[in-house]
């Protein structure tokens, strides 16, 4: 009996180690392309392979000197910022509606609001471009903003809804009860309470918009965004510029995501209870 227990415990340990090893392998697979791209962005060889060439800033200098990249970066930033504001606004409305109201057709409403991410981007891209052309508004920067907002609003909704979940539903009623109009309660209670989630949502939607290429590629017309530039370079020859741009985009997005996470995780620092 004792021996069997002993074997079992040993087997447990081996299985644990095997699983953790496997996990490391999976992580290796997931992070290999990311790390590779960062490394090669500093590599002097034209065709990125090993052994590595010497360290260089060449590719960064190339993109720094490239007016098209600058133009695209500007477009990307404008689109990402506008998208994040619009998408967060819409996400907030949806989350608040779900939190506060019960009504007939609520399920259909939520499906309508949350469905976009389940539609393949390429289909959304096709449909959006066709629709904008039909309305005669295609090729403008703000058509990318609209398309990205549709895509990003559900993410904002999810983040803000999770935060609202933690709000005592009496809080808003308490504000009315103390003389706040619906608007005043919204401004003074609901918005401050969800502030951390709103910032998270702004960052997340900005990051998604900053990375999105399929819809932007179709809809953008002449206003290319950074991912569209990458796509176009990709269609040409092997060009380590991509790694430089990619690293730049990666750093931007990751900064946004980390800010979002910080606000989300650190929203309510545990305070010592006063004795």
């Amino acid at each position: 009996m004792n021996l069997i227990m002993h074997l079992r415990i040993n087997a447990d340990r081996v299985i644990r180690l095997l699983l953790l090893g496997y996990l490391a392998l999976v992580f290796f697979f997931i992070f290999t392309p990311i790390v590779t791209s960062i490394i090669f962005s500093f590599n002097s060889e034209r065709f990125p392979t090993i052994p590595l060439g010497s360290f260089t800033w060449k590719w960064y200098q190339t993109i720094y000197a490239d007016a098209d990249v600058w133009e695209a970066a500007k477009t990307s930033i404008v689109v990402a910022i506008s998208t994040s504001i619009l998408a967060t606004l819409i996400g907030f409305c949806t989350a608040y509606t779900d939190f506060r109201y019960q009504f007939r057709g609520k399920n259909s409403y939520l499906v309508l609001a949350l469905l976009p991410p389940t539609i393949p981007l390429i289909i959304l891209a096709l449909a959006m471009l066709a629709w904008f052309s039909r309305l005669g508004i295609s090729g403008k920067i703000w058509t990318i903003v609209i398309a990205h907002t549709v895509l990003c609003a559900p993410f904002a909704m999810a983040v803000i809804r999770l935060r609202l979940q933690q709000m005592d539903p009496d809080l808003e009623s308490a504000a009315w009860n103390l003389g706040a109009s619906e608007w005043a309660a919204m401004r003074n209670i609901v918005v401050p309470f969800t502030k951390s989630a709103i910032i998270s949502a702004l960052c997340l939607t900005m990051a998604v918009s900053f990375d999105e290429f399929a819809v932007a590629w179709f809809v953008s017309g002449l206003n290319k965004t950074i991912p569209v530039i990458i796509l176009e370079i990709l269609q040409g020859n092997i060009d380590p510029q991509i790694n430089a741009i990619g690293t730049f985009v990666f750093v931007t997005s990751i900064t946004l995501v980390i800010i979002a996470q910080l606000f989300f995780i650190l929203r309510s620092p545990k305070q010592p209870t006063h004795v």
């Binding site: 005592d168 009496d170 308490a174 009315w176 009860n177 003389g179 706040a180």
Partner: peptide, 19 residues
């Protein structure tokens, strides 16, 4: 409207504004 009544309520949950 509740905001125009001046009938303040002390809530079971207290509903103090945490922020």
């Amino acid at each position: 409207k509740p905001s125009d009544r001046n009938t303040p309520l002390v809530w079971q949950s207290l509903a103090l504004f945490p922020f």
